[in-house]
Amino acid sequence: MEGTEVEARDEDRKLQIAVRSAKAALLLSSLKSSVDRVFEAAINDETEVKEKMRREINSLKVELVRERLKIKKIKFCGVMELILQAILVMMISSFFMKLALDDDFPFCNYSAT
């Protein structure tokens, strides 16, 4: 009977070892798949972050171009205002010069005395 008991214990040990090996294989498989999923999720997150950064960079570039155009318009308006003021000053000064040098101007008629 001892021979059958020893064989039964060996069978039990082999069965336990087989069950443990199967459990370990399942755990390793699930661990590997979860690591793969985490790695894929990290890659997807990284691509999403890169895409978001690209979109933000493009929107900032568009905003920069708009600001540059605004600045150019402001400079152009400033130059035009300066030119118009110079023209106005020249017109007013020429008007008064014409009045001063004109013989028909009543205030400049010195020979009427």
Rank of each mutant, 00 (worst) to 15 (best):
V35S: 02
A86R: 03
V49A: 08
L99P: 00
Y110F: 04
I57H: 01
V38T: 14
N58F: 14
L28C: 11
L99I: 10
R68K: 13
L69E: 12
N58W: 14
R9S: 01
K70W: 10
D103H: 14
S33G: 09
E7T: 00
E40C: 03
L82A: 15
F39D: 11
F95A: 05
Q16A: 13
M97W: 05
M80Q: 11
V38D: 11
L64Y: 09
L99F: 10
D10E: 14
D102C: 04
L64K: 06
L27Y: 05
M80F: 04
A100T: 09
L27A: 06
K70S: 12
E81D: 02
D45S: 05
L26F: 07
M53E: 08
L26E: 06
K73D: 14
K72W: 07
D102Y: 12
V19S: 07
E46Q: 12
S111F: 13
I17R: 06
G3A: 06
F39R: 10
D10P: 00
V89S: 06
E48K: 07
A41S: 05
L15W: 12
R20E: 08
A22T: 00
P106V: 04
A22L: 05
V89M: 08
D45V: 06
K14C: 07
F39Y: 00
C108T: 11
N44K: 09
S21H: 01
S29Q: 15
L60M: 15
D104R: 04
A25S: 05
L60A: 05
V19P: 01
D12N: 08
V6W: 01
K23G: 00
L60C: 09
S111Q: 08
E67D: 14
V62D: 05
L69T: 12
E48T: 15
L26C: 10
V6P: 10
E81W: 03
Q85K: 15
V79S: 12
T47A: 11
F76D: 13
I43F: 07
I92E: 02
S111M: 02
K52H: 11
S33A: 15
M90C: 01
K72Q: 15
K23I: 00
T113P: 02
E81G: 03
V38I: 03
T47L: 11
V89P: 01
D103P: 02
E11Y: 08
V65T: 11
E56D: 13
Y110K: 06
F76R: 15
T4L: 00
C77L: 08
S111I: 07
F96C: 04
K98D: 07
V19R: 01
K14S: 06
S29P: 02
A86H: 08
A112M: 12
E46A: 10
A112R: 03
L28S: 14
K73V: 13
A41Q: 10
E40F: 06
R9E: 01
L82N: 15
A24S: 14
K70I: 13
R66K: 08
A42Y: 01
A42Q: 10
E63M: 02
I83Y: 10
L64P: 00
E48C: 14
D10M: 03
L15C: 00
K32C: 09
I83M: 11
L31T: 12
V49D: 06
